[in-house]
Nucleic acid binder design. Structure first.
Length: 393
DNA sequence: GCTTGTTTATTTTGTT
DNA sequence: AACAAAATAAACAAGC
């Protein structure tokens, strides 16, 4: 029964090479690239490579080696992927959220946008706007929060951000929004920040756990290698996650806060756990006196585990890796941090921001800022997603 | 009443 | 195949 529903959920062949691009010739030289599973499982090549092939190519990243990855060997693919990362402006450098930069790429006419196919643009029956972005909900949430000026968003803002960026999510809203909420609640990497008294409204703010910064260190936004668990487990116990907020292994269920085996109350699930009310990491009401900014108080409250003051990424960019705080590896080419390597500008007005995948303006802006061709203004959107996941150590 | 948030259960998908 | 992460569904409570 559920199966049927599930199938419905996958009604969009999404990013499978053949599903949306009409043909696979361009992307499937590896031999097994014509299926979803090929995304990240092609032998010898990074999953990232695959994904990149699907996403980046169209983008106009124009790496000839890319669509022929299979034939040219893993090396070529990886190289292409890496090269791609360097192409576009960083996510953060774009005015609108990162994906916006990819706009030109995501354009429905994206077939043309794809440099590789420029010689004979073919009409694609289905556009990217219908394709499900290759990001997990956790990734989406993370990106949204990261790109926000205050580094925290309300649920509604999250919804807005996602729908603005990904037309795919303008449909079946109930479904994915429920998933978003579930992700927020379920994952320790997201923390709830109460609204300030002077900012009444519905819902709390959601922020990233300060130590969750390396969640996507492996560059794979589709699937984390390990789930982030707040370091401070209930009581003194923390059979796991003892690494203080690092991603830890663990079965979805057994580790889950709500795990049957878990006798500990949900209160500390996210590590903030002291106050029953602050279950699952909800922060205590901020102290207006001590913390001027919403984020500041967040940081303050989360400072038990070694909290590293956020570096402005553009600042971090000037640092050598050994200067980075332990949990912020900005230097990783596919790191989500790297993806959003600069403090994003304040969220633009919806009217401006909107434009889905195909807002040329954004691309132009990005290009203007980055000095790159708008056509390449996307890479940041995809570049990180498909690198071979690397185990965090 | 709607939105937000939590929790449980199940299924799907990717990795080892 | 086993395991783990993610997606999905749904029930429920609380707050606005």
């Amino acid at each position: 029964m559920l199966g049927a529903v599930k199938m419905e959920g996958h009604e969009h062949a999404d990013w499978s090479g053949s599903g949306y691009y009409g043909e696979t010739e361009c992307y499937t030289s590896a031999g097994n690239m014509n299926s979803m599973s090929s995304y990240m499982s092609a032998p010898g090549m990074s999953g990232a490579g695959h994904m990149n092939a699907h996403y980046a190519n169209p983008v106009g990243v124009n790496h000839s080696s890319m669509h022929c990855g299979g034939s040219q060997g893993p090396g070529a693919m990886v190289q292409a992927a890496v090269g791609m990362t360097g192409l576009g402006p960083s996510m953060s450098s774009m005015s609108p959220p990162p994906p916006y930069g990819s706009v030109p790429v995501m354009s429905p006419v994206y077939g043309q946008a794809c440099g590789i196919r420029s010689r004979e643009p073919k009409p694609y029956r289905r556009s990217y706007t219908h394709a499900k972005p290759p990001y997990s909900y956790i990734s989406l949430i993370t990106m949204a929060i990261q790109q926000s000026g205050s580094k925290m968003l309300t649920l509604n803002e999250l919804y807005q951000w996602i729908t603005d960026l990904f037309p795919f999510y303008r449909q079946n809203q109930q479904r994915w929004q429920n998933s978003i909420r579930h992700s927020l609640s379920f994952n320790d990497c997201f923390i709830k920040v109460p609204r300030l008294p002077d900012k009444p409204g519905k819902g709390s703010f959601w922020a990233l756990h300060p130590d969750s910064g390396n969640m996507f260190e492996n560059g794979c936004y589709l699937r984390r290698q390990k789930r982030f668990k707040s370091g401070r487990a209930s009581g003194a116990g923390e059979k796991e996650g003892s690494e203080g907020g690092s991603v830890t292994t663990g079965s979805t269920r057994s580790d889950s806060p709500h795990s049957p085996s878990s006798t500990s109350p949900p209160a500390d699930v996210k590590g903030t756990g002291v106050d029953p009310k602050a279950r699952r990491g909800e922060l205590l009401p901020p102290s207006p006196v001590r913390v001027p900014s919403p984020l500041a108080h967040t940081q303050h409250l989360f400072s038990h585990p070694p909290y590293h003051p956020p570096l402005l990424l553009h600042e971090a960019a000037h640092l050598r890796p050994d200067h980075y705080p332990p949990h912020y590896s900005f230097n990783h080419p596919f790191s989500i941090n790297n993806l959003m390597s600069e403090p994003p500008p304040p969220r633009p007005e919806p009217a401006v921001q909107y434009g889905g995948y195909g807002c040329p303006v954004t691309g132009a802006l990005v290009a203007a800022k980055s000095g790159l061709d708008p056509a390449h203004g996307d890479s940041s959107y995809y570049r990180g997603a498909y690198t071979r996941p690397v185990m965090n150590t």
